[in-house]
Design a protein around this nucleic acid. Sequence first.
DNA 1: ATGTGC
Length: 498
Amino acid sequence: MELVEESPHRYRIPAHGAMRVPGVVFASRALLTDVRQALQQVVNVATLPGIVGASYAMPDVHWGYGFPIGGVAATDVADGGVVSPGGVGFDISCGVRLLAADTDAEAFRRALPAVMDGLDRAIPRGAGPGGVWHLTGPGQLERILAGGSRYAVEEGYGEARDLTRCEDGGAVADADTAQVGPRARERGLAQVGSLGSGNHFLEVQWVDEVYDAEVADAFGIAAGQVCVMIHCGSRGVGHQICTDHVRAMDRAMPRHGITVPDRQLACAPVDSPEGRDYLGAMAAAANYGRANRQLLSDAARRVFRRAAGARLSLVYDVSHNLAKIESHPVAGPGVDAVAGPGPGASVETGTGPGAETGPGERRRLCVHRKGATRAFPPGHPDLPEDLRDVGQPVLIPGTMGTASYVLAGVPGGDAFASTCHGAGRVLSRHQAARETTGAQVRDRLEAAGIAVRPRSLRGLSEETPEAYKDVTEVVAASEGAGLCRTVARLVPLGVVKG
DNA sequence: ATGTGC
């Protein structure tokens, strides 16, 4: 496959065969090792009906179900554009939430063991059922699916201010709970307020380095400050919804006259019964994921209050697995996404004030972000007022025991205002577990001064840092590609895992 | 990611 280096962090796969648009890969040379399968998926995605601009890959791209993880694709709703569950992934609305404590790491050290023990008891995790809420009936699940974090806060599990620091104010309005099937509901009942397993975690971290003090200050974080980062999704609900709607679309594709190069790219026009049904169910799962993070935040807050006398305030909550209907400028047909980022250079800049002046007509697009984070630039109307001048906070969870990052959206960013989402796997779970044992991983973390509260040792071995790309390099490549700017680095004091 | 594998 031809990969043309256009700039140090931007590569292009020229459109060929059935591709309707080119592929654009943001990466460094080092990050391009072992991504052959993922880049074939970038090519496959470029054939989808209605796709505009390019099929994008973020620097943390790796192989996924149909679409690559670290992929961004937008389709034109009025031009037969499709929505594909594979473009969101099985863990619908998986995302990250960051809370900042009113204490610094030095003062906090003494309280750490008690806080970790408290979190160990308070945070449900691991595969299968178990959550902080025990639902009393189906009506309560209905309200979670429709109301997300907003419902959790109404019920007393948070502060009104939290909602101003959540993407979409804590809930998307277009959830269609009638499209959430019985199996998804059944699984959802018993998992409200739980981390799950795999790379999901709750970490106690501290701000080890600030790169942009002004933006960090606006976000509410400062050097030395203790934070809590929560990375989790919509558990069995999202998984079952993805499964159910992939099947429905797979059956409906012939009726819509759609053929795809890979069955895992099952899709339907956004403006079709199957497309609308999926988007409504996906929005319900998104709300479930947000409520999930809100409830875990409340559990962490109680522990911090009791064991450390500390208060946690929300920095931001953002998903990295979601499709959204957004308006972006798009160049006319025949115009490729050739140019790199820079003044006047990009064909489909992000939304925001810069976008209106760029070339192309604004179109209603279905933007799929799978393992990619929305990164609105300064001035975007959907940002809360106190963040409007600095841009959207972007939260990047690192590999267990290494670093995580806080980034900010920038003007002129390419890929429909999106950036990376994390480190990205290089070893499969199985391979990782063969490299080391959970006990070894635990001992290494403890020797580095990081407290670990795992639910299973097997899970720890699968998450060994060697299984992932270097998150620092991913973040540097994303900034180098003009997708975001680096604001702060966070390092763990303690890890709670499934 | 996932009651982890049709």
